[in-house]
C-alpha cells in the first residue's frame, strides 16, 4: 500500500516546502517564489491523479485504447495561467514597493510603516492640543 501512495506524499512534501517559504521568509520575491512552488506542486497533484497505468496521452489515434484522464489536464492548463497571472501581478507590486519603501524585506517595511503610523498620530495629538 505504501507504493500506491508515494506520489501523493512527494507532492505533499513539495507543497509544504513552498508554503513554508511563503510564510517563513521575509523577502518579498522569495515569498512569490514560494507561492509558485506551492502552486506547481498542486498541479502535480492533479496531473498524477489523472494518470492511468498503461494509458497514453489523450490524443485520439489508431490502435490506442487506454487514455489518461483529460479533464485534470484541462483544469491545470487553466490553473497554470492563473498562476502566472498572480506571479506577474505580485512582481509588479514588488517593484512598486521597492520604489516606495526602498526595500523588499518584510521587516524593513513593517518598521517604516510603524514609523509613519507614529508620525500621523503625533501630528493628530499635537493638533488636538493646540
Amino acid at each position: 500500500m505504501i507504493i500506491g501512495l508515494y506520489n501523493d506524499w512527494v507532492v505533499v512534501v513539495l507543497m509544504m516546502i513552498g508554503l513554508y517559504i511563503v510564510i517563513a521568509h521575509g523577502n518579498l520575491i522569495k515569498k512569490i517564489v514560494g507561492l509558485a512552488i506551492f502552486q506547481t506542486s498542486v498541479f502535480i497533484l492533479y496531473i498524477s491523479m489523472a494518470k492511468v497505468e498503461g494509458g497514453s496521452a489523450p490524443i485520439l489515434a489508431e490502435g490506442i485504447k487506454q487514455f489518461s484522464n483529460p479533464l485534470p489536464h484541462v483544469l491545470i492548463l487553466t490553473a497554470i495561467v492563473v498562476g502566472v497571472a498572480t506571479t506577474a501581478l505580485g512582481l509588479a507590486l514588488v517593484i512598486r514597493i521597492n520604489e516606495a519603501y526602498g526595500s523588499i524585506e518584510e521587516e524593513d517595511i513593517q518598521h517604516l510603516d510603524n514609523q509613519t503610523q507614529d508620525e500621523t498620530e503625533l501630528q493628530a495629538t499635537e493638533g488636538e492640543q493646540s
Binding site: L19, V22, L28, K31, L35, F38, Q39, V42, T86, L89, G90, L93, V94, R96, I97, A100, Y101, I109, D113, T116
Partner: peptide, 20 residues
C-alpha cells in the same frame, strides 16, 4: 498611500494561499 501597496501585497499572498 504607499501602505496601500504593502496591504495589497499581503492580501495577494493570503488570497493566493486561500485560493490554492
Amino acid at each position: 498611500d504607499r501602505r496601500a501597496l504593502w496591504a495589497s501585497y499581503q492580501y495577494l499572498i493570503m488570497g493566493t494561499i486561500g485560493a490554492t
